[in-house]
Design a protein around this nucleic acid. Structure first.
Lengths: 210, 210
DNA sequence: CTTTTAATGAACACTGTGTTGTGTATTCAT
DNA sequence: ATGAATACACAACACAGTGTTCATTAAAAG
């Protein structure tokens, strides 16, 4: 890997732009924000902004890219399978490690992520986050199930679970992160493994039906 | 209810605006579209647009409102509980009527809804759709479960299921609606009632654990 | 210390916005 | 059918934001 020394001025300017960008995202949202707003607040020349980014959409994209890359890194590093018991079976009491780490990452970067995943957030970003989760969930399902045993199409099932996870993350962020990443991951694990109806208390009916 | 006769010219103009709006939403998306684009395409004067809407955001909001109201109407009309068997128990084989109707509504209005719920869609609208589903799911859970039997917090459970439903709807729209509303509703019902892990084929493990 | 280059400040043309005033044409009510 | 009401067209307006350019200044690199 080639180590390039980047001019300090560049680093400082980009840093200031990103800081201010995060601030304004929270205060007025992306669409309402202008490049003028940003550069005035950041106390840099408007022209300077265009030395670094094509426009505000480019800035958004590049900022999202960083978060996205972090998340993919987590997904790749955390070999996110459940631990296996003596029968090489899934341990259903244990939360999914990747999900814990994902919550932890959200917690660390909540300022910006909260906005991106919020009601005035960015659909495209949400789709990307969902893709990361989907990939991991697909891995999990493929690991522990035989395709011929599936009762519903794999892609819809993955879509179901991943969207559910993202939705719970959004709810959690919106509530000001009222639980720990561990608690949240366990909660999600319980619903996903035992099923919404079961954890809602419909046990008898389900047992009977099966 | 007072029957107001609205000037035909108004109706025609608004009709044309909405038609063109839907077209442009699909072609270039909301943010890329200008009022100029719209009025030129619709062949009306730009000033006329401002006689009916404050700006393009107002137009978007009012268009979404209509869809939203339709969905709430469906939610209110369809007494969306599952049918009960002789023991006054939930029939788990039957899809949720409200969900069938929701899919049918999406199918009818797919041109516009596909864009709003798509990757370049509107987060706020997605939140609103989710709210409609949430309300109905909460009703369902409250109907069939006793709060003290709940194994996870109600609000997170509702969030989980509703987000999952919306996610599957989005997937379905993105795939060009490859199944019927009935099939989709049954699929969702199966996952929600028996659980993702169960329908993925992890039956033995789950039985053993319980 | 010299060279390189990032940032500044000011100006530019351009696009889109939202409003206004006047005239025309359609619609409504009788 | 006719007059009154009003929605729409047309044109012009000031304004805000964009993205670019160029000469100048300041800071960093070597």
């Amino acid at each position: 890997m080639v180590e390039k020394k980047i001019d300090r001025r560049i680093l400082r300017t980009r840093q200031k732009i990103k800081e201010t960008f995060a601030q304004l995202m929270e205060e007025k949202g992306f669409e309402a924000m202008t490049v003028r707003d940003l550069t005035e607040r950041a106390d840099i020349n408007r022209g300077t902004f265009y030395l670094h980014y094509l426009d505000k959409y480019d800035l958004l994209e590049k900022s999202e890219d960083e978060l996205f890359e972090d998340m993919e890194k987590i997904a790749d590093e955390v070999w996110g399978n459940l631990s296996l018991n003596q029968y090489d079976q899934v341990n259903l009491d244990e939360p999914f490690p990747f999900i814990i780490q994902l919550f932890e990452y959200m917690e660390e970067n909540y300022e910006f992520i909260r906005v991106l995943l919020g009601p005035n957030g960015n659909s495209a970003f949400q789709v990307r986050v969902k893709e990361v989760i989907k990939k991991k969930m697909l891995e999990k399902f493929l690991r522990y199930t035989q395709p011929e045993k599936m009762l519903v199409p794999m892609d819809y099932l993955v879509s179901y679970v991943s969207s559910a996870h993202l939705g719970v993350i959004q709810q959690w962020l919106g509530r000001g992160m009222d639980r720990t990443p561990q608690e949240m991951a366990l909660l999600l694990s319980n619903i996903s493994n035992f099923g919404p109806a079961y954890v809602a208390g419909l046990k008898e009916i389900i047992e009977e039906k099966k």
